[in-house]
Design a protein around this nucleic acid. Structure first.
Lengths: 187, 187
DNA sequence: CGGGAATAGTTGACACATCACCCACGTTCC
DNA sequence: GGAACGTGGGTGATGTGTCAACTATTCCCG
């Protein structure tokens, strides 16, 4: 709508006041919540949220071993991020690497005993924190709303055009997206 | 419920299934949304979300100059983070530093012309992105819910015990919080 | 069989956040 | 006036995330 300018000076859609308020509130909350949860976990369990996420994936798997790229996909991380992170976790003894017989390129990430006890120590406090900071405050309908809002946005992010530009596991996988301006034939 | 263990093995409050779903959805969404917005901004405006946040604070101020710690407080950043970041932004010409006459310790961060044009270039695309990824998808009541949920959690985070442990602008400001167990006189 | 193309994963440079310290200046109070 | 303490701000080491480029293997197809 409202293509007022023949030479297409882009009409900016700024946020309405209520949208502004909601957006600012969300951004602030999300930043603080992340910071708080990260700090809490690293203070009383000596692992980071990122470590925790990796360990959760490992414990969720039978055999407690996962291929590196499968890890990347389930966490929505870039493969280089996973690679770096696994190196660091290996140095700290949380995981171990094993080469994959059937595919010479591949390698497994395997949970160590130390890794298992780390997550077992961290999980209860983390769950308690999430309760205290989130679910103890929200009504049932707010919990539902939170899920629905999150799912809508997430779906938007991972399907269609957005996904094409952004959902890439690394630079060399990036699909070359020429915008194409489909609705706008040149003057 | 279920205090089965007389010697108070801490009973973990795990998340209910609906809470689990909501929490997972939120975490995934929040991660992807952050990533997407950051990438979009750095791709088509050559500044980061952090730069953007700083520049917004500067343009919101009369005179376009702000004291460093005031910046830190309004952004809820640690002062060392602001300090490092201002150094980098200064190197790229987005801001300039000026010493403060009335207080020999202090210094101002001042918006440069280059900084102003950077944010003016970045803002419309960012606003459009927020529309496309968030507000175009949500009903009015969902927008309200998002704000309320965010405000509740944020308030929880910045008041009371949480704030004491976590809301610190830097390590040496950290209040030494001895838990004190106020409701629990020693045996 | 041979020669791309895709796949699995690594590496190095850089940007960024945090932590623990540090220093300079200002305030207060004796 | 100066000791003690608070405040404004900076520094360097370290851990982490991203990008771009790279190696090694496997797949596909003629």
């Amino acid at each position: 709508m409202c293509q007022l300018f023949p030479y297409a000076e882009p009409v900016t859609r700024w946020l309405e006041p209520e949208q502004q308020q909601a957006w600012r509130a969300y951004v602030r909350m999300q930043g603080e919540l992340n910071a708080h949860l990260s700090r809490q976990m690293s203070v009383d369990s000596d692992i980071s949220m990122a470590d925790f996420a990796v360990l959760v994936q490992l414990t969720d798997t039978r055999d407690e071993r996962v291929r590196v790229l499968e890890l990347a996909r389930s966490l929505h991380w870039e493969k280089s991020r996973i690679s770096h992170h696994v190196v660091r976790m290996e140095k700290r003894g949380l995981v171990r690497r094993e080469s994959c017989g059937s595919d010479g390129r591949g390698s497994f990430v395997v949970l160590t005993d130390e890794g298992r006890s780390a997550i077992e120590e961290a999980a209860p406090a983390h769950a308690e924190m999430v309760h205290k900071l989130v679910f103890d405050l929200l009504t049932d309908s707010e919990v539902t709303a939170l899920r629905e809002i999150s799912e809508k946005i997430f779906t938007r992010l991972t399907t269609g055009e957005c996904a094409a530009v952004v959902a890439r596991s690394d630079a060399d996988d990036a699909v070359e997206v020429v915008p194409q301006e489909s609705g706008c034939p040149e003057a």
